[in-house]
Design a protein around this nucleic acid. Structure first.
Length: 443
RNA sequence: GGAGGGAUGUGUGAGUGGUUGAAACAGGCGGUCUUGAAAACCGCUUUGCCCGAAAGGGCAACGGGGGUUCGAAUCCCUCUCCCUCCGCCA
């Protein structure tokens, strides 16, 4: 969310920057100016009347103590009361409309972000490793099913489409990847491991920007009844990413950044309704209702957030490099960035089975956009006023997609899959995944 | 699920209808003293919004929402959360 005063004094600039996302986005601000004027006029009038009422009340107390006549004041305040109530309603209405606009407009793109209207205009910042060309490369779902470690059919039976069951060495590979990533971030990159709830309330989802606009992408639990559009602190939603619980840890708090920025990482399941993606990526593990992810979140000062953004992105890249998975870093253009983000790098991993790069991580600096919604502040050294922190988040990495990237990049002509060297200790010494049935080796 | 207690500023914690936006203490910041530090002493120390060029003035906020009243942190209703005990339970 942007600051009301900032939008008011920089309306032309804000419109211009929003137009870099899309024309429709900029149009959200069309009614801003008249509404803002209306709101302020109403507030000024209400507050004038309230000041009168307060003065009369003070007089009332005085007179009553002196035992004097109070009926005249009673009559005056009585007539003020109705007008105040009336005008207050008008002021609240204008304020709500304005708040709706502010809550619905996305973050402004940072100056370093390339202009563009769609993903076609994203910029390749760097490429690491050579895209492996494998003779008769198979997609991961074929590899996984023939090895007997992935089972999409039984997953469909017990849960429906867009789920998977993993068995034996396959299940262990998921756990190995997660442990490897967590250990790397904790031991070498300075993150603190967190195990957060994977259900959150709507107030949290508002703070990170998923609500109110993207409710249909989320799974809502109806234990407290259907979603009413209000931000409650007692309802439950399944998290779409650990960014939500991690960022909300410090909601409504003033945190201490005097000893440096705060970095958290967490391994959690993530749940996405995928309401708008019928027919896309229906095969395999690319797009699931449930997947696991190691998430990185940072709380920083405004001065350091862009350096930290580069560092966080490097932390995610390091996972791919240690796993030996070719990738490229994309700078998302203004038209392709997420709602809350000011600048986003996507990491795309090479998938030889599909002859394409696919997103495996998304690293964003959202500046103060979420901090303002979540009311997360810090006190700069020597300053008397607190300021909003900057928050950053990135996948480090999406484990499900890393898993399928390993299957496709390390597949062998005989149908087996080599285990990347760094994962061998996490696999109990297993160096090759061979055909198995419910975990038992088969010929 | 049952019974009871509670929610106040950075923290602890007073305050049960009228200079209480809020005591006190702690913490933080500044100052005096000191070679320096500590101690002691003095001062400052919530946020959002509205009017205003500014100086300054005003409104609102004591978990959320609603009500009573001329006036609510204080009384009533309601919701949420936390704590204690009982029950159930991985």
């Amino acid at each position: 969310m942007l600051d009301l005063g900032f939008v008011r004094t920089n309306l032309a600039l804000v419109k211009e920057k929003l137009a870099l996302r899309s024309a429709e986005t900029a149009a959200l601000l069309d009614s801003f100016e008249p509404l803002d004027t209306e709101r302020r006029a109403a507030i000024t009038e209400v507050e004038t009347l309230k000041a009168q009422r307060n003065a009369l009340s003070a007089q009332f107390g005085q007179l009553k103590r002196e035992g004097k006549d109070i009926s005249e004041i009673q009559r005056q305040t009585g007539s003020l009361k109705d007008r105040i109530a009336e005008l207050e309603t008008a002021a609240n209405l204008a304020d709500e409309k304005l708040q709706t606009i502010l809550q619905t407009i996305p973050n402004l793109p940072h100056d370093s972000v390339a202009k563009g209207s769609s993903e076609d205009e994203n910029v390749v910042v760097k490429t690491w490793g050579d895209p492996v060309q494998i003779q008769d490369a198979k997609p991961h779902w074929e590899i996984g099913e023939s090895l007997g470690i992935l089972d999409f059919e039984r997953a469909a039976k017990i849960s429906g489409a867009r789920f998977v069951v993993q068995y034996g060495s396959g299940a262990r590979l998921e756990r190995a990847l997660a442990n490897f990533m967590l250990d790397l971030h904790v031991r070498e990159h300075g993150y603190v491991e967190v195990l957060p709830p994977t259900m959150v309330n709507s107030r949290s989802l508002f703070s990170t920007g998923q609500l109110p606009k993207f409710a249909e992408d989320l799974f809502h639990c109806d234990d407290k009844g259907p979603y009413t559009g209000e931000y409650q602190d007692s309802d439950h939603w399944l998290i779409p990413t650990a960014e939500v619980p991690l960022t909300n840890l410090f909601r409504d708090e003033t945190i201490d950044l005097s000893n440096g920025n705060i970095s958290f990482c967490a391994y959690t399941p993530c749940y996405r309704a995928e309401a708008g993606s019928h027919g896309r990526d229906v095969r395999g593990m690319i797009r699931q209702h449930q997947f696991q992810k190691v998430e990185l979140v940072k709380f920083t000062t405004p001065e350091t957030s862009y350096d930290e953004h580069e560092a966080l992105t490097r932390n995610a890249e390091t996972v791919l490099e240690k796993l030996g998975l070719p990738y490229r870093r994309m700078l998302l253009c203004t038209g392709d960035m997420g709602f809350s983000s000011a600048k986003t790098y996507d990491l795309e991993v090479w998938l030889p089975g599909q002859q394409t790069y696919r997103e495996i991580s998304s690293c964003s600096n959202v500046e103060s956009f979420q901090a303002r919604r979540a009311n997360i502040r810090f006190k700069p050294a020597g300053a008397s006023k607190s300021e909003y922190v900057h928050t950053l988040n990135g996948s480090g990495l999406a484990v499900g997609r890393t898993y399928l990237a390993v299957l496709e990049n390390y597949q062998q002509p005989d149908g087996s899959v080599r285990v990347p060297e760094v994962l061998v200790p996490y696999m109990g010494g297993e160096t090759v995944l061979r055909p198995q049935r419910f975990g038992k080796a088969v010929e």
